[in-house]
Design a binder for these strands. Structure first.
Length: 514
RNA sequence: GCCAAGGUGGCAGAGUCCGGCCUAACGCAGCGGCCUGCAGAGCCGCCCAUCGUCGGUUCAAAUCCGACCCUUGGCUCCA
């Protein structure tokens, strides 16, 4: 089945056709000037699942995700800590943090994480090309893109140059030819008032200026938009397949990227533009500047990666989503349901061997249906919520199978006793191969594609602690057999207080660490 | 003002591209039953929707067309 995506360039659903052997994906990454928040992580996670799906679908994916490490906001924080002596020091600090969070969220590694500061020569080359082609001009050491020189200006955002011109104040134009022209290169360092605007501490009489580089137009810094064009072309190609970014970047950032890139190469910059919806709290977007954010660090600490991912995967990438404690609680329920079903399937599988003769056709059909429905959903513009529903239907089939079967082979006659347990009527042994396939489905679709980590936080037998819990449960089982329920319940409560969740079942107690 | 996205049950959120299988998915919350010594989990079932408003097209509309109302995002810090 073919993959179709909603292309924000054309505002239409289109069949996805890659241009070459490799699918070239560029993700508009983070400006590393502050702690990233859950809004950023939503983009990362959706971009992650999209590339994981392409990979799973058999494409070779080259995934580039940049770090913007040259920015006024970063420069403004120089000196805030003793070790932050330069703009690069601040950037380095945040980049290493972000990489740690990305790992924490179980994001698959991108192929390359390029940084602006390492691509100044490419940026200068691109600016020179634009000047030579008559699309850009120099003024007092700065270089601007002339929006009137590019016929398609506005294709992505549907903005008209005239409208943009009309809203600009006449004196706002300054040294630019048109108010809508944007900087490719800015002369000199960061101005003191820009530093003051973004600084979180008082710089006194000696504000930092940020780093500057030598260029044909004198010392200066690259403009905001040119970096993505330069890095996309350097690490991917003049024409890439998919460009992913947040909805708030459509204008001006992505519009300007298209203008400068296509003006320079004469080629289409990106064939498919995917824009992710923004995360909101209390009906406004979560953003650093509004101060209403929940950091990735805090969220990882409080909820863990699987709950966070489940939360994001309960809406489509293009929709906006509202963050709330209630929504996170729901995500937690959803995730635990999946996880419990997976754990139970693994336990059941361990309790029978591959010679078991049960074949539960319902379970096996459910596995096939899950693959089919999941694939159809993901191919339908990465409809992760529908795909999650497919996984949910698998848990239902697995749980039903587990309810109706036991670990004892059907050589036992109904009503027979095995140890303290009685074989319920009409029960047969687990379907080993059916369960195996269900487990593999959880691992491939839930694990490989959705990046959920089954098993890692739930393994019961983790060293000494696990052994001790086993021991306690043996004692408790003896109590239960003797009818000493009061003590058994006390022990279960005490274990729960310690974060060990005990559940009794036909096959004896199971437990897991919270 | 200009541009874009959206308005579906208590909450959340698919379905809208390609009209009929939508008497509206998967969930969360709530209720009942089964199971269990109990609890939890699980299973089965139930409750809650004139699909923003008005009009049009059609044998048939949540889905197409028009108008209007409301919300959110962008309009050179933004994922």
């Amino acid at each position: 089945m073919a993959l179709s995506v909603t292309n924000s360039l054309t505002d239409e659903r289109e069949e996805f056709e890659p241009t070459g052997e490799e699918v070239l994906v560029y993700v508009c990454g983070l400006t590393v000037s502050d702690d990233p928040h859950l809004g950023h992580a939503r983009l990362w996670t959706h971009a992650d699942v999209i590339t994981r799906w392409l990979d799973y679908a058999g494409y070779d994916v080259r995934h580039v995700e940049n770090f913007t490490d040259v920015n006024e906001k970063i420069a403004a924080r120089v000196g805030e800590r003793p070790e932050w002596e330069t703009e690069a020091d601040v950037a380095r600090h945040y980049i290493s943090q972000v990489i740690e969070y990305m790992r924490g969220l179980n994001l698959a590694r991108a192929t390359v994480y390029p940084r602006v500061s390492e691509h100044i020569p490419e940026i200068i080359d691109l600016v020179e090309t634009l000047i030579d082609a008559g699309h850009a001009y120099e003024a007092n050491g700065s270089v601007y893109f002339d929006v009137t020189s590019f016929n398609d200006y506005g294709v992505l955002s549907n903005q008209q140059i005239d409208d943009l011109e009309a809203q600009g104040e006449p004196d706002e134009r300054g040294e630019k030819r048109n108010a809508a022209d944007f900087a490719l290169w800015k002369a000199g360092g960061v101005a003191p008032d820009a530093i003051a605007e973004h600084a979180k501490h008082d710089h006194g009489d000696d504000p930092p200026t940020g780093q500057t580089w030598e260029s044909p137009w004198g010392e200066g810094r690259p403009g905001w938009h040119i970096e993505c064009s330069a890095m996309s072309m350097t690490h991917l190609a003049d024409t890439i397949d998919i460009h992913i970014g947040g909805h708030d970047l459509v204008f001006p950032h992505h519009e300007n990227e298209i203008a400068q890139s296509e003006a320079a190469t004469g080629q289409r910059f990106a064939n498919y533009w995917l824009h992710t919806g923004l995360l909101e709290t209390d009906d406004e977007k979560m953003s650093s500047s509004l101060g209403n954010f929940f950091t990735v660090e805090a969220a990882l600490d409080e909820y863990g990666p699987n709950v966070i991912r489940t939360f994001y995967l309960s809406t489509e990438y293009g929709s906006k989503q509202t963050f709330s404690k209630e929504a996170m609680a729901e995500a937690e329920e959803r995730w635990e349901r999946l996880q419990r079903s997976y754990d139970a399937a693994v336990d059941a599988c361990d309790s029978v061997d591959s010679t078991a003769k049960t074949e539960d056709s319902e379970l096996r059909a459910a596995v096939d249906d899950t693959h089919e429905a999941f694939t159809a959903a993901m191919n339908d513009d990465f409809n992760v919520r529908e795909a999650m529903a497919a996984l949910r239907s698998l848990t239902k089939a697995v749980n039903r199978h587990l309810d109706d079967h036991t670990s004892y082979d059907d050589q036992f006659i109904d009503g027979d006793s095995v140890g303290p347990y009685t074989i319920p009527d009409s029960h047969t042994a687990y379907d080993y191969h059916g369960l195996k396939r269900a487990i593999e489905t959880f691992e491939s679709l839930g694990g490989e594609v959705f990046g959920l980590q089954f098993g890692t936080e739930t393994d019961g037998d983790v060293g000494l602690a696990g052994d001790l819990v086993e021991l306690l449960l043996d004692v408790r089982e003896a109590d239960r057999e003797a009818g000493n329920y009061e003590r058994a319940d006390e022990l279960r409560d005490s274990l729960a207080d310690l974060g060990v969740e005990v559940q009794d079942s036909d096959d004896g107690p199971t437990f897991r660490f919270e």
